[in-house]
Nucleic acid binder design. Sequence first.
DNA 1: GGAATAAGTTAGTTGCGACTAACTTTATAT
DNA 2: ATATAAAGTTAGTCGCAACTAACTTATTCC
Lengths: 226, 226
Amino acid sequence: MDLTAPVEDYLKAIYELERSGEPAETNAIARILRIAPASVSGMMRRLAGQQLITHAPYRGARLTPAGRRAALRTIRRHRVIEAYLTSALGYSWDRVHDEAERLEHAASDELIDRMAAAIGEPATDPHGAPIPTRDGTLREQTLTSLLDVQAGEQARVERVADDDAKLLRYLAELGIVPGASIRVIAREPFGGPIAVRLPSGTKTVGPALAAQVLVAGSARKPRPGR
Amino acid sequence: MDLTAPVEDYLKAIYELERSGEPAETNAIARILRIAPASVSGMMRRLAGQQLITHAPYRGARLTPAGRRAALRTIRRHRVIEAYLTSALGYSWDRVHDEAERLEHAASDELIDRMAAAIGEPATDPHGAPIPTRDGTLREQTLTSLLDVQAGEQARVERVADDDAKLLRYLAELGIVPGASIRVIAREPFGGPIAVRLPSGTKTVGPALAAQVLVAGSARKPRPGR
DNA sequence: GGAATAAGTTAGTTGCGACTAACTTTATAT
DNA sequence: ATATAAAGTTAGTCGCAACTAACTTATTCC
């Protein structure tokens, strides 16, 4: 059973939404895929017909095991491609997402495996997102965002949002990249700015940006091999 | 104006058919793309509407300048991808065609240029087909096939058909690869077998295979850098 | 508990690109 | 010169995946 590109995109979106444990709602899927909610309703029927999701009308969708497998396969493709483009072809991390978004639907499993092998089977993509293994296993760490770090605490940047090129360029400028140490110096209340110390110096960021930066606890853990 | 994958495939097919100077006929296009002739008639109308071809009913199609540019762009993508997969990722030459057939529609110009640069801007793909330049120039050599080599003559293999994996594996076994010297020892008339001498020894091939092997004149020319 | 609002669905349309069946045009062969 | 074969086209259908407009179901708030 070969899936179309739109179907793979839906499954990816539903997978991401489900990470919080709740069913994926129609409007949320529509927002991610930038299509009309009515189009999502139509596709839900098809996906349910192919046993890729279960769908209770007005109640959102959940992936079936087959749907989850397909989603993880697409996510693996996407992240391996992103990693390969940066490691092997000199892409900057803000330009790999769009390219991977198209290639993920066209690359064979063999190509993905060869790419992964060529760059040493990385565990994460350039934005810190974990890469599912060939057999569809994904260790999802539950990370907190920079918003949850209290003043005075220290944390390590684990992962950043991958789909906004302008944001990524700015983050790179600030030095907010996976692996970087970050300390919150001060926080203004009511969604005010956050002052942080980075290896490159002290900066102030807004909450919208902070929400896109995922960090691992204040206790410093040894770096996993990356 | 962004072209769909099927449109790119039609333009490639028409380009290949036009190489002999004649207009591309409906049935020939249908055979290459493995679709029904009626489907081709329908697409002709669309392509003509987009000014990519001119089409006189019952008279075949010709590419417009815009159509030719688009065809060459797709062909460049295809051949660069084939070359990259063999040079950089260890693909054998019989497995690159199918992969390239899909990736050519998804890769950005930037990716293609980076791939080409990474492997030293090769002039041909692994099967000896010339790669169009970035600006859409393609030096089409007029080659003869092994069928046209008389007994006793020597030639150099320049290019082989790229889309039949089984044939390619067999050719590799025989040592019939671009750059190889080949001498026709004897020929039986009426489509009979052809005895050839290769670096690896003496072999006998049928006319169907010989037709797929393109060679450059008996006079040995210096090898162009490849 | 009923009105307002948010969320979701249905109905009907569109474009693409394939298909089959039936028909027309062109080429070929006696 | 006409019959036949080959090539090509038209007409109508289908599935996919989007759309808008109109309607229905849930939720929330007094």
